[in-house]
Design a protein around this nucleic acid. Structure first.
Lengths: 200, 200
DNA sequence: TATTATAGTGAACGAAAGGTCACTTGTCAA
DNA sequence: TTGACAAGTGACCTTTCGTTCACTATAATA
C-alpha cells in the first residue's frame, strides 16, 4: 500500500500541475486531495521538487517507450483511407486519454521554466510527430499511394495542423467532437491533395 | 514619471510572467528589477492580480487593434512569390519582436488557469491565424493564383505548420535562423502544391 | 510661500508556503 | 511474542509571500 500512495501522489501532482502549474500548486492541497496531511508526503518524496522530477522522469520514460522505439510505431497504412483511419484512431486516443491530455497541458505550462520539460514539449508538439510520420509517408510514396515529395515536409504539413487542433481541444474540451470532425476533414483534404491519382 | 513606472512594471511583469509564470513570480523580484522596493508597486496597482489583469487587458487590446480590425489585415499577395515574401516578413517580425514572443509564452503558460488567457491563446495559436488567411486564400483563388478549394482548409494547412515552427522557435531561440529557413521551405512547398499551374 | 498630490521607502503584519520531527499505528518477519 | 520497519499524523519551525501603513521627498498648484 506504500507504493500505491507514491503512485497516487504522482497522479494527483500531474492533475494539479497541469491545471495550476508547479508553482501554483501546494502540498497541502495535493495531499488533502488524497485524504492525507502534508507531512505524509515526505515519507514518499524528499521535497516538492522531487515530485516534479519523478513526474518528469515518468513522462520521459513513457514517451520513450511509446514513441521512441521503432517497433511501437504504427504500421504503414496500405491505402489513403487507411491513413485517415489510423490518424483518427490516434487522435481519438490522444484527445480522450486523460493522462496524455494532462501531460500536454503540463508541458505547455512548464516548458519555459524547466529544461527537460522544454525538450519533451518539443518532441510532443512537433519533432516527435514529424519523426513518426516521415517514414510512414516515405513508405507510402514507395508504394505509390502518395505523390513523391520530401517525406519530412509532408510529415510537417500533415501533423502540424492536427497538432494545432489537438491543442485547441485541450483548451476547450467541450469542443472535442467538433474538433475531431475538423481533424477528419483536414485528413481527407490532405489525402485528396497529396494522394496519388487512382490510389485507393 | 508616474505613468512611466506603471508602464515599466507592466513590461517587467510580462517578462517575468512569461518566464516563470504568474504564480512563480513574486513582487520583490519584480520591483527590484526596476530599482524599487516591493511596497512601491502598490502606488500603481492595487494588487499582484491587478497587474495580471492590466497586462491581459493590454494584450487583448493590442491583439484587437493589430489583428482584429479588417483594415489592418495584410494586403492580398498578387503572386505566389508574394505570399512567400509576405509570410516571411510576418514570421520574421513575430519571431524577433520580444514583446510578442513573451506574449505567446505567457499565453502558453497561463491558458489553462485564466479564462481570458485561454480565449486569447486560442486566437493567437489557431483561430486568429486561420481567420486572417482564409480571405487571403479566397481572394487568391478568385485571381487564379491558387487551386480552388475550401479557403478555410487551406488557411489551416498553411498557418498551422508555420505556427508550430514559431512555437519551436519560442522554445529554442538559438534555432531562430534554422527555423526561419524551415518556414520558408514549407511556404515554398505549399505554393508548389497548391499554386495554380503557371501562376507567377 | 503654503499646500497638496504623487512616488517612493522601510518596517511590520498575517497568511501561507515548504519542510522537520517526535510519536503512533499497523504489518510482517524472526 | 517481540522487534523492526514503513506509513501516517499533528505540532511546530522558518521562510517567503502579498499587503498595509506611517512617513519622507519632490514637484506642481494655489
Amino acid at each position: 500500500m506504500a507504493k500505491d500512495t507514491k503512485e497516487r501522489i504522482l497522479e494527483e501532482a500531474l492533475e494539479m500541475f497541469s491545471q495550476k502549474g508547479y508553482a501554483g500548486t501546494n502540498i497541502r492541497e495535493l495531499t488533502a486531495a488524497l485524504g492525507l496531511v502534508k507531512s505524509s508526503m515526505y515519507k514518499h518524496f524528499d521535497s516538492k521538487e522531487a515530485i516534479w522530477d519523478a513526474l518528469l522522469d515518468q513522462m520521459i520514460a513513457y514517451y520513450g517507450q511509446r514513441f521512441g522505439s521503432a517497433e511501437n510505431l504504427p504500421p504503414v497504412p496500405d491505402s489513403l483511407e487507411g491513413l485517415v483511419r489510423m490518424t483518427m484512431g490516434m487522435v481519438d486516443f490522444t484527445v480522450h486519454d486523460e493522462k496524455i491530455v494532462m501531460t500536454r497541458k503540463l508541458l505547455a505550462i512548464e516548458q519555459f521554466r524547466d529544461e527537460r520539460a522544454r525538450a519533451l514539449a518539443g518532441k510532443h508538439f512537433l519533432t516527435g510527430l514529424t519523426q513518426m510520420f516521415t517514414p510512414i509517408f516515405a513508405a507510402m510514396m514507395d508504394r505509390g499511394l502518395i505523390r513523391r515529395d520530401d517525406p519530412e515536409m509532408l510529415a510537417l504539413a500533415y501533423t502540424a495542423p492536427i497538432s494545432s487542433l489537438i491543442h485547441q481541444c485541450d483548451r476547450e474540451p467541450g469542443q472535442a467532437e467538433e474538433v475531431m470532425k475538423r481533424v477528419e476533414a483536414f485528413s481527407r483534404h490532405f489525402v485528396k491533395v497529396y494522394g496519388e491519382e487512382g490510389a485507393s
